[in-house]
Design a protein around this nucleic acid. Structure first.
Length: 275
DNA sequence: CACGATGTTGGTAT
DNA sequence: CATACCAACATCGT
């Protein structure tokens, strides 16, 4: 489940593998991974060279000069470098075959991930990128911005953290972690958080994203970076995946509930409703 | 064997 | 507009 620290880790490991490489051709083995017409996608990319790999929130942005390839890994999308002729695995859906004989492949067990080709400069209008809020840990994500945004929303804080509109980058794992760290009940309406809670949550978000990125992300199911390596933040998780175990802070047992359909683990003692 | 849970975004409904 | 809900999928556990 690549959240922002995982996607950033992918970006860092991917960049040296693809920047400077020229596409000879693209093979698509599962059309639906392409948003738009797969034939156009293949034709347009022929002869193009990867110039950079950027990221915003959980979106990867492969730059090819005037073109930008927007890629979202969703649940289980992965990239790795191989060769044109390597046997095509069951879950490999596409490859960029480079002129030097190597190939970048996209693999996705769940087939939820998507790739979309857009003109560079339009990516923040045309794709899911346009609704994204400030990135966790970025200069745009100031305490003031966060406070003001929370005041305008009545939805449950857990849902708001997940919907990417106020703060981009958190998924289900980090959302549960930061709410536990800041002692906030996941069901609390965003506009009812106290100033002290807001400050704790803000600091927890920045600290967690920074540390998780530094440790190469979290591998709980299957996350691997573009070099095939697992992350290490799973060793730091205090809440996610710990339902039924004792809260390290107070000893109460963590419980797991559904919040708008999403599994949510929290401590019923430390994270009581209201302040 | 059938069914529910998993998790992210986007489309649709209210 | 804001919020809620479900679909898109494959795999695993009950």
């Amino acid at each position: 489940m690549p959240e922002m620290p995982e996607v950033e880790t992918v970006r860092r490991t991917l960049r040296p593998l693809v920047v400077g490489k020229t596409i000879d051709h693209v093979d698509v083995w599962y059309d639906k991974v392409i948003a738009g017409d797969p034939e156009t996608f293949k034709q347009t990319l022929r002869g193009k060279t990867f110039t950079a790999v950027d990221r915003y929130g959980k979106f990867l942005l492969f730059r090819l000069g005037d073109l930008t390839l927007v890629s979202h890994l969703r649940m289980e999308g992965k990239y790795h470098l191989t060769t044109w002729e390597a046997p095509v695995g069951k879950h490999e859906h596409l490859q960029f075959a480079f002129t030097d004989g190597s190939a970048l492949r996209y693999q996705d067990v769940r087939k939820f991930g998507r790739l979309q080709l857009v003109e560079t400069g339009t990516e923040f209008q045309q794709t899911g990128l346009k609704r994204l809020g400030a990135e966790a840990g970025s200069p745009d994500f100031s305490l003031e911005y966060f406070e003001k945004g929370l005041k305008k929303k009545s939805k449950k804080i857990k849902n708001l953290l997940l919907d990417q509109t106020l703060v981009a980058g958190l998924g289900n794992i980090y959302a549960d972690e930061v709410l536990w760290q800041s002692k906030i009940n996941p069901l609390t309406p965003a506009d009812e958080l106290t100033p002290a809670q807001v400050k704790r949550l803000y600091e927890a978000i920045n600290k967690t994203v920074e540390e998780a990125t530094r440790l190469g992300g979290t591998t709980v199911h299957s996350f691997l970076n573009a070099a095939g390596e697992a992350g290490h933040y799973q060793e730091k998780l205090q809440v996610y995946g710990h339902a039924g175990q004792a809260c390290p802070r107070c000893g109460e047992k963590f419980v797991k509930i559904k919040v708008s359909g999403r599994g949510t683990t929290y401590c019923p003692f430390c994270q009581k409703e209201e302040k």
